[in-house]
Design a binder for these strands. Sequence first.
DNA 1: ACCTGAACACCGTTCAAGT
DNA 2: ACCTGAACACCGTTCAAGT
Lengths: 202, 202
Amino acid sequence: MRLSREAVVTGAFAILDRYGLGDLTMRRLAAELGVQPGGLYWHFANKQTLLAAMSDAITGGIATSREQVSGDWQADLAGLSRAFRTALLSHRDGAELVAAGYALRPGSGQPLESMIKIMDRAGLPDPESRAAAAALVHFVLGHAAEVQAHDQLRAAAALPEVADQAPDADAAFSVGLEIFLAGVAARCAGTEPRSSRSAPGR
Amino acid sequence: MRLSREAVVTGAFAILDRYGLGDLTMRRLAAELGVQPGGLYWHFANKQTLLAAMSDAITGGIATSREQVSGDWQADLAGLSRAFRTALLSHRDGAELVAAGYALRPGSGQPLESMIKIMDRAGLPDPESRAAAAALVHFVLGHAAEVQAHDQLRAAAALPEVADQAPDADAAFSVGLEIFLAGVAARCAGTEPRSSRSAPGR
DNA sequence: ACCTGAACACCGTTCAAGT
DNA sequence: ACCTGAACACCGTTCAAGT
């Protein structure tokens, strides 16, 4: 069967979900697709490009669908952050994969630009909204990467505990997100258009 | 000359600073030390253990020296975060190195525990202070990793711009840090700091 | 246009054997 | 105790040659 970019990406996700990022090699992928390793390089210039395509597949579709939902910027920002987290957790090692390519390709498909827009509407001017969005992205990426690392440690140790500390991770994410939202709200105090005043300044 | 754990770590840092994390291989390190690759495995069980030792060398000495400086928890937390950032930036790819081992070895030498203590004193109870500290660590790690990735992209492109956007990065870090501090302060509003509650007349 | 075959230049790790 | 020599089982990538 003829190969294609999509077929390669699909096969790559199959290996990622079954064996993890460490075992996602060009040679293993070629074997999975019934092809010689060199054949992959007609469709992708190198492994990095393939990983970038996978990263875009994970983060794509989040930003556009959640751009402007309501007038409440805090709800919008929380929803976008949760959607980002869910997308990262939807594939094994998804956070590590996206984080690896994130710094190299600024904003290419990440929800960063959407976050900046939401904060702009909240009353944060451009340089600060960009810095704030970057901080939020770093938090979500780091949190999701930690969750998935713990997942794999548990799987490797074959612990019989079923639901272990999944609720802990969810609660920890909510705490971090709420702190961030409160911090942005405090910084917007005075300049904000019409949102609720929640936190006192410093 | 006889090898030692410290000599191996020192050589590893030399390669890291000169060639980057991607070129830090056991074979190259062995050549640098005038030794056969297999010889390294008498001092370190595997590469991961060596990288963990390097990570500890980077983060060690921050937490202990900056534990309780003043009574102002915001100043303490900001100082600790900045010291953490400086430590990560003190070696090439330092943030990526520390981040890679971070999720696998919870808290082993990271300033996370110090952050938790500071927030405890600020009035945040345990489960929340832990989640907040994790969020702060993720922000600092992600920020530093992005800064260093941009550093290398600039170096690879051989851009003639000298000071480029280093001030931008510093300002972005400050914004993220201030937002976080304001968010924690907002969450602590109402609950008095521990020192004024439990210590009756000091 | 799309892929094979085969090679190039690497990896981390192990382990008998030497000293 | 500490390291060598040599191997094992892999990597990503290239590229002439086939179809």
